[in-house]
C-alpha cells in the first residue's frame, strides 16, 4: 500500500487549534451523585462523552457520565475568597449542644 501522506508526524509537528475543554463528572454507581473527576478535550459533546468513557472509566469506575463545557462553568473569584469563605462563624456548626447519653445515631 502506498502511503500518500508519508510518515506519521508527531503531534508537535501538527499545529492545530486546541479542541474545546470539557469537565467530566462520573457517577460511580446508582444512587450516588456525579463527582467531578477531571477534564478533557473534544470537538463536541458526543466525542466528549466517548473520550470521558475512554479516559476516566477504563477500570469500571462509572455507571453514568456527565460532560459540561468548561466555559459554561462560572467559578468564584479567588479575590473573593476571604469574603466568601474566610468567615469565623463557628456558631453555624452544631457543636454546642449537649447530647444526652441516651441519644444514639447523631
Amino acid at each position: 500500500m502506498r502511503t500518500r501522506s508519508g510518515p506519521v508526524p508527531s503531534p508537535a509537528e501538527q499545529p492545530r487549534e486546541a479542541w474545546p475543554l470539557w469537565e467530566v463528572f462520573v457517577r460511580s454507581r446508582a444512587g450516588l451523585s456525579h463527582q467531578h473527576v477531571g477534564s478533557l478535550h473534544a470537538v463536541d459533546a458526543d466525542m466528549a462523552v466517548e473520550n470521558a468513557r475512554d479516559v476516566y472509566t477504563r477500570r469500571g469506575e462509572g455507571a453514568s457520565l456527565w460532560v459540561v463545557p468548561a466555559d459554561a462553568i462560572t467559578a468564584s473569584d479567588p479575590q473573593d475568597s476571604s469574603a466568601f469563605f474566610g468567615l469565623d462563624e463557628e456558631f453555624r456548626h452544631p457543636n454546642h449542644y449537649v447530647v444526652p447519653d441516651e441519644v444514639h445515631g447523631i
Binding site: P11, W19, L40, H41, N51, D54, V55, R58
Partner: peptide
Amino acid sequence: HAPALEEDIA
C-alpha cells in the same frame, strides 16, 4: 502518536 491525548488512550 495519536492526534490527541484522548484518542491516544482510546
